[in-house]
Simulated assay, not measured.
Amino acid sequence: MRTRRAARAGQYVALLAYLAFLVFPFLWLVSTAFKPPRELGSLHPTWIPQDPTLANFRQAFAEQPLLRAGRNSLLAAVGAALIAVAVATPMAYVLARRRGLLARAATGWVVVSQAFPFVLIIIPLFLLLKDLHQIDSLPGLTLVYVVWALPFALWMLVGYVRAVPVELEEAAAVDGAGRARILRSVVAPLLVPGMVATGLFAFVSAWNEFFFALVLLKSPDHQTLPVVLTHFIGAEGVADLGPLAAAAFLATLPSLVIFAIIQRRITGGVLAGAVKH
């Protein structure tokens, strides 16, 4: 009994330490965003700003086009999430219901493709987009995000499809429904929690992505929010800390708000997809 209690106490301590590790950077970011320059340069930093100010936010919007960059990031991220889920859903249905060697090979390739580093694919990807005349364009960047998110979205949705009872599909088939109608009318409604969770992960991945946006977008009018955030860092590597923290805080809010709104659906989708994965 004592051993079990000690093990459980150790688990709680580890969980609290992990939560503190995750929360600490965000809390420090929020604190820095509201501190005046005098407190930012203090030798004795404090958690709570002594004289909170919104000057950093005003300066951030005055120095960089955050609204335009946020719009670009939003368009690319939402487009990539919607397209990735729309394409991955029927593909995941086929892979989940097929048991042959081809299905297993395709699933294995999906997992292996996630190990490819960005640097390995950026040159052929750049040349391909150049041939398609999609360099320095949001549609081209969205296409890249779709391709990059598709393997992970497919891998997640395969698990969700396998959690759907086959008996429901067999009953619909007895009533004369074809494969397309079964997927649309029977399977898809049950996959909504998983599709929402998968789309959210694809959205967050595209929203936070920096490398592809940096390489593929040259025009200031097309740059996304992660790229614009680097403009607060000077040529000598010295950051304008207050405005940078304020802009980074604003860039973090959309993901937090979306997680807060659909948290229950995400949890339900993840648990459903994990049942038979």
Rank of each mutant, 00 (worst) to 15 (best):
R2H: 02
T3E: 11
A6N: 07
G10V: 07
Q11C: 01
V13R: 14
A14W: 02
A14G: 07
L15G: 11
A20W: 00
V23H: 06
F24V: 12
F24Y: 12
L27T: 07
P36L: 03
R38F: 11
L40V: 14
L43V: 10
H44D: 12
T46Q: 15
Q50C: 04
L54A: 15
N56E: 06
A62F: 05
P65N: 07
P65G: 06
L66Q: 04
R68H: 04
V78M: 07
L82C: 07
L82F: 06
V85Q: 08
A86G: 12
A86E: 07
V87H: 02
A92K: 14
L95C: 03
R97F: 07
L101E: 13
L102M: 14
A103K: 10
A103N: 09
R104K: 15
A105K: 09
A106C: 14
G108R: 09
W109N: 09
V111W: 10
V112D: 10
F118A: 15
I122H: 05
L125G: 09
F126S: 11
K130Q: 14
K130G: 14
L132P: 08
H133V: 08
H133G: 05
Q134T: 06
I135M: 12
S137F: 03
L138V: 04
G140P: 06
L141C: 11
L143N: 04
V147L: 09
A149F: 04
F152P: 05
L154K: 08
W155N: 03
M156S: 13
G159Y: 06
G159E: 10
G159L: 10
V164W: 01
A171W: 08
A171P: 01
V174G: 08
A177N: 12
G178F: 06
A180R: 15
R181L: 12
V187S: 06
P189K: 11
L190E: 10
L190G: 08
V192K: 15
P193F: 07
M195L: 13
V196K: 05
T198P: 03
G199M: 03
G199F: 03
F201Y: 12
A202S: 13
A202E: 01
F203A: 01
F203P: 02
W207H: 02
N208R: 05
F210I: 06
L214D: 01
V215L: 09
L216P: 01
K218M: 00
H222N: 15
Q223A: 05
L225G: 00
F232V: 06
G234L: 07
E236S: 14
G237C: 06
D240G: 00
G242F: 05
L244I: 11
A246M: 04
A251E: 07
A251S: 15
T252W: 10
L253N: 10
F259E: 09
A260N: 08
A260I: 04
I261S: 09
I262Q: 09
I266D: 01
I266S: 02
V270H: 01
L271H: 00
L271D: 09
A274I: 02
A274F: 02
